[in-house]
Amino acid sequence: MIPGKFDYYAPTSVDEAIDMLVTHGSEAKILAGGQSLIPAMRYRLAVPEVLIDINGLTDLNYLKQVNGHLAIGAMCREVDLEESDVVQSQYHLLADAAEVIADPLVRNQATVGGNIAHADPANDHPAVMLAYDATVVAKGPSGERTIPIDSFFTDLFESALSEQELLTEIRIPTPGANSGGAYVKLERKVGDYAIGAVAVQLTLAADGTVAAARIGLTNVYYMPMRATGAEAALIGQDPSDEAVLEAAGIAAAAECDPSADLRGSAAYKRDVIRTLAKRAITKAVERAR
């Protein structure tokens, strides 16, 4: 399993990288962590003519709390999330996900940005970022723009990024008071994609009801998806009420559309989503209290 031939470029600045994207267009692929791209190239499922390696863009390798959000630079590795006190103490949903993505060796190299830019519904971060209502920052020849996560994913492996744009940063709003989040994933074994997974980020009102909630689902739709029905079933309700949880779980199961594969039948995956949604909500509520 040997990759096809390509030309390799290692820009030293974001602007240089964008120039290369402009020059090579659809022939080029960005190489960040490479943990999805390189295996795809080894199977020759991906045969890019040009690789633009952004690992040298060390100014994109950051993870910092600024202006009410967590800023994750494009070259921030998954392992950085695990090692970050800020993430571990304030971004529980993200911390949960960081532990169950692929395996520890892959996480040492894989990037958060790559996980999102790949727009694979089987990846874990898309659902997490949907639940967080994150913002993607992209830079292209005409400058920088921000893309709300709700409009970022457009299709299977397709995003709002143009061929000439580079994802430079992801911004996660800092959870406010009485907020909590959780990621609950069912996988066949370590390193596998999810049979199904649920990302929940919610805020409780003073009376204990759910004031706000966003829920993302992993690997149960042709593209990354939000479970807006499940969110609606929660908002304004008492999440300690088993009937409320069940309603949210049922809603999530109804609105996803998993396909049958070796990970299970569609019926199984739907029911897994129902169960995991309840568990993720319960965990998020515990953290919000």
């Binding site: 490479g34 390189i38 295996p39 199977y43 392992v79 520890p104 060796l105 040492n108």
Partner: peptide
């Protein structure tokens, strides 16, 4: 060939990675 087994693990700049998944 699928970044699954770790037989090729080496340490690059202090972090263990799978050397079959890096050029």
């Amino acid at each position: 060939d699928s970044t699954s087994c770790g037989a090729c693990t080496v340490i690059v700049d202090g972090r263990a990675i799978k050397s079959c998944t890096m050029f």
